[in-house]
């Protein structure tokens, strides 16, 4: 029974990992940019929510979440159109990479200086601690909400990309960024929208992390490698992959920790390393 509980908790943790990976995968899939600052945007949204909650304690959590997501959406749009788009004109893929790592260091260090490096949480009253019992397994409400949201967002994103005309434009831009211009599409604007969505998705991950556990300015960078693993395992450019990758890593981490308590992320890394050697193009075959 204890093992089943571990697996279930692993799946719930995997929901969070999937959420973290999805934004990164979206950006990489559409513009071939590895965004090193994604983790910091996650933490930034959490700090934003903490500040708003402190200023207006009576606000409903959903409104606070909404504000934080909207804020992150705008940040993402500006980040892409003012900064990342400019460096993407260079033919060298290292330019946007270093640029985003630079942004990540700036954001993280400013957050440390301004807010300090202490552990913080987003107290949503009883919701943060609540749990329900299913078949004698105790399941936290927040982790369950995380996984449900994660799956819902994956479905929504999938629907948007496959079924809407905006999704079609995004896929076409990912295929051929110069040819779409012949149809009146401005690639820079598409990229800005994609980055905005991606940062908003990271924000959701950050809010859930803050609400179910605690966070510091370093919470983002500490999960950057696992986010990369989620994306690569899921197959770069695939949009379903990150959820599957995230679930696999979440289960592996908790089962590994139960078996070998001071292993940290060792078994996640081992799983990743073995998988990537067996299938160098990821678990889910790439779209392109």
């Amino acid at each position: 029974m204890a093992w089943i509980e571990t697996v279930v908790n692993g799946l719930l943790l995997g929901g969070l990992y999937g959420l973290i990976g999805i934004g990164l995968a979206l950006v990489f899939g559409v513009m071939r940019v590895v965004d090193g600052a994604q983790g910091e945007f996650m933490v930034m949204a959490a700090f934003f929510a903490v500040i708003v909650l402190a200023a207006a304690p009576d606000l409903h959590p959903l409104i606070i979440f909404g504000l934080a997501i909207l804020f992150s959406f705008c940040v993402g749009y500006v980040y892409q159109s003012w900064i990342v788009n400019r460096s993407m004109q260079s033919s060298d893929p290292l330019a946007p990479l270093l640029l985003t790592f630079g942004v990540s260091i700036i954001l993280r260090s400013v957050m440390v200086e301004v807010f300090g490096a202490d552990l913080r949480g987003l107290q949503l009253g009883s919701l943060s601690r609540a749990s329900i019992a299913i078949f004698n397994i105790n399941i936290g409400v927040m982790p369950l909400l995380t996984l449900a949201t994660s799956i819902a967002l994956f479905l929504l994103l999938q629907w948007m990309l496959k079924r809407t005309s905006f999704g079609r434009i995004i896929r076409a831009t990912a295929d051929r960024r110069d040819i779409v211009r012949l149809f009146g599409v401005k690639p820079d604007r598409v990229y800005a929208c994609v980055m905005a969505m991606s940062v908003a998705l990271s924000a959701i991950a950050g809010l859930f992390l803050a609400a179910r556990a605690s966070f510091t300015p370093f919470s983002g960078v500490e999960r950057l490698l696992i986010a990369f693993e989620v994306v690569v395992l899921g197959g770069i450019g695939s949009f379903w992959g990150p959820l599957i990758g995230g679930l696999a890593l979440g289960v592996t981490q908790l089962v590994g920790l139960k078996w070998d308590p001071n292993a940290g992320l060792l078994y996640c890394h081992l799983l990743f390393f073995i998988m990537i050697l067996i299938r160098p193009s990821g678990l889910v075959a790439s779209r392109s």
């Binding site: 434009i169 896929r171 076409a172 295929d175 779409v180 149809f183 779209r287 392109s288």
Partner: peptide, 17 residues
């Protein structure tokens, strides 16, 4: 220079943009 991840119909629909 077709859009490789779009179907024939979706490629044509890009003209409607």
């Amino acid at each position: 220079m077709l859009f490789d991840s779009l179907t024939v119909l979706e490629n044509l629909m890009m003209g409607q943009v």
